[in-house]
Measured scan of single mutants.
Amino acid sequence: GGTTSGLGELPSGWEQRFTPEGRAYFVDHNTRTTTWVDPRRQQ
C-alpha cells in the first residue's frame, strides 16, 4: 500500500489491477466491465 495518492478506497465491487506493462486499470465486478478511468475521479 501507500500509493493511494489520497483518493481513498475504491467503490464497493471495484478492483485495481495492472497490465503486464504496469499500467493501472479498474475492474467493476458489479457490471463485469473494465475501465482506464479511476472511478474515484468520477464522483
Score class of each variant (00 low, 15 high):
18 F>Q: 09
29 H>L: 07
5 S>N: 14
31 T>L: 06
30 N>V: 07
26 F>Y: 14
40 R>S: 06
13 G>C: 04
6 G>Y: 05
38 D>M: 05
1 G>D: 13
8 G>S: 07
42 Q>C: 14
31 T>E: 08
27 V>T: 07
40 R>Q: 05
35 T>S: 11
22 G>W: 04
15 E>F: 01
23 R>H: 15
24 A>P: 09
34 T>S: 09
42 Q>K: 13
38 D>K: 06
4 T>M: 14
2 G>R: 10
3 T>E: 13
41 R>T: 14
38 D>P: 03
8 G>K: 09
2 G>Q: 08
23 R>T: 14
24 A>T: 12
9 E>G: 10
34 T>C: 08
30 N>P: 02
40 R>W: 03
5 S>Q: 15
9 E>D: 13
9 E>L: 04
2 G>V: 11
31 T>Y: 01
15 E>K: 04
34 T>M: 05
1 G>P: 08
17 R>I: 12
39 P>I: 01
7 L>F: 12
9 E>S: 08
29 H>A: 07
24 A>S: 10
40 R>Y: 02
39 P>D: 01
24 A>W: 05
31 T>A: 08
27 V>Q: 06
30 N>K: 08
14 W>A: 02
27 V>R: 03
11 P>T: 00
40 R>M: 07
21 E>G: 11
3 T>C: 11
5 S>T: 12
10 L>A: 02
22 G>S: 06
18 F>W: 10
29 H>D: 05
36 W>E: 06
15 E>P: 00
37 V>P: 00
8 G>N: 12
11 P>H: 02
30 N>M: 09
41 R>K: 14
12 S>D: 15
13 G>D: 05
3 T>A: 11
26 F>D: 03
16 Q>I: 10
32 R>S: 09
33 T>M: 12
9 E>M: 09
23 R>A: 15
38 D>R: 06
35 T>H: 04
6 G>V: 12
13 G>I: 00
21 E>A: 08
11 P>Y: 02
19 T>A: 08
25 Y>L: 03
23 R>W: 12
23 R>D: 15
5 S>R: 09
19 T>Q: 07
